[in-house]
Design a protein around this nucleic acid. Sequence first.
DNA 1: CGAACCCTTGAAACGGGTCAAATCGTGTGG
DNA 2: CCACACGATTTGACCCGTTTCAAGGGTTCG
Lengths: 243, 243
Amino acid sequence: MRITPCSECSLRKLECFSKATSDEISFIQSYKKTEIKLSAGKTLVHQGSRNVELYTLKSGWAFRYSLLENGKRQILNFILPGDFIGLQAELDKELNYGIESLTECVFCVFPQDRIMDVYSQYPTLGYDLTWLAAHGELIVDENLISVGGRNALQRIAMLLVSLYKRASSIGEVVDESFNFPITQQHIADSMGLSLVHTNKTMAKLKLYGVQEITNNRIKIRSLDKIARLAEYYSLPLRNRPLL
Amino acid sequence: MRITPCSECSLRKLECFSKATSDEISFIQSYKKTEIKLSAGKTLVHQGSRNVELYTLKSGWAFRYSLLENGKRQILNFILPGDFIGLQAELDKELNYGIESLTECVFCVFPQDRIMDVYSQYPTLGYDLTWLAAHGELIVDENLISVGGRNALQRIAMLLVSLYKRASSIGEVVDESFNFPITQQHIADSMGLSLVHTNKTMAKLKLYGVQEITNNRIKIRSLDKIARLAEYYSLPLRNRPLL
DNA sequence: CGAACCCTTGAAACGGGTCAAATCGTGTGG
DNA sequence: CCACACGATTTGACCCGTTTCAAGGGTTCG
């Protein structure tokens, strides 16, 4: 498998990521251990495992979830290209969540045990890591706000809007539509709804003429309309760091 | 108002915090701008404000919340002594949440605009900040898991267990009981339940002989029992950094 | 052609929401 | 010291959003 050097990473060309200096990029390159390629539906990290590495999702979609004893699965957040994963892990502690791919995925792997190098050699990147961790919390915040305070229609609308915006920022939206490898079961598990009710609610949303899904691609007809439905409060977006 | 020097901070004597070197402590001292004292029920940070500082809660309890357009308030997490606040903020962006005190509180204030000093001068503290941000996400994760996947009884049980553990780790639990400045409305808003149903559920919990509340103090009779009820999955605890 | 998934739909049961109102402090002012 | 206001806790009745159970249909893939 040929691995592109970090300096030529296609993600880095996107506007949504902040510019790194060439020094930083070559440090990142040296910090990067390898790449992992996963086909769709595979587990990158098992719930309950220890000593997890750090990852950047280079391509594909994935999600982070937690299984409850009652058999339910709560999806904590969806992971899109450029997202950094693993900071929530604590060395030597059992993880309370797992990570699974939705499509074929490529992850860049950074060894957890060398993380202090980042802070001691590139303070700016250290700050970026903090920023990424904090930003991760904001996304979970949004999900909690949805699940805790909105009804089914609004929750799903909210999820679609937020995925649309995230997909859009990395250039995956073409003609108001984008690849959507998420099943209704995923939506249900992420929004704390049953599969059946999720299905009926999405049918209703479709009636509103707002979205339609055909072979793994979703088209959002009117972002305004769906955002109004969700009482969408826009998440502040700024350029984000990429490791 | 007399301000204790960081080196004599009473929190620092607690076992639950990792040890800092005296160098680090004096740096923290110099980074600290001032202290803010708030009486109960006051707002430290308004939702929608910008340019927020960073804070450590030195004493008292507080909480972080977000108001929805439909009038609901979602409590994102409760804040206990030693917790660090404000990393979720992004400079110059509107905050999507506010912070309010539950009791009289004292906050240590650290200027946002000097945060890079931490990373450039004390890499280890920089790493600690990342850890704190990531740990904050874990707590929100737990709430999302509860709200998304558990019923009312379990959610409240879960909340009580987790508050018990957190209070216990900072030495606030005496004889299985601790100060509990949280109203049923707070519990409702944090667990995505209505006030009425929260009340009825707590009455049921009381019947289980599990907890009782008298003048702002809660007594947990059997942590085991209530934890089993909640299908509690213990959050990994390690010593955490204190800034 | 079946197996495995995913999406759909209908009907019935229930957990939790909403509305309304009473009770119980606790602090305030006359 | 009592009267009153205000916030928090309770309780009962009713309603509705969502869950659960059950079953049918579509599509992909070996």
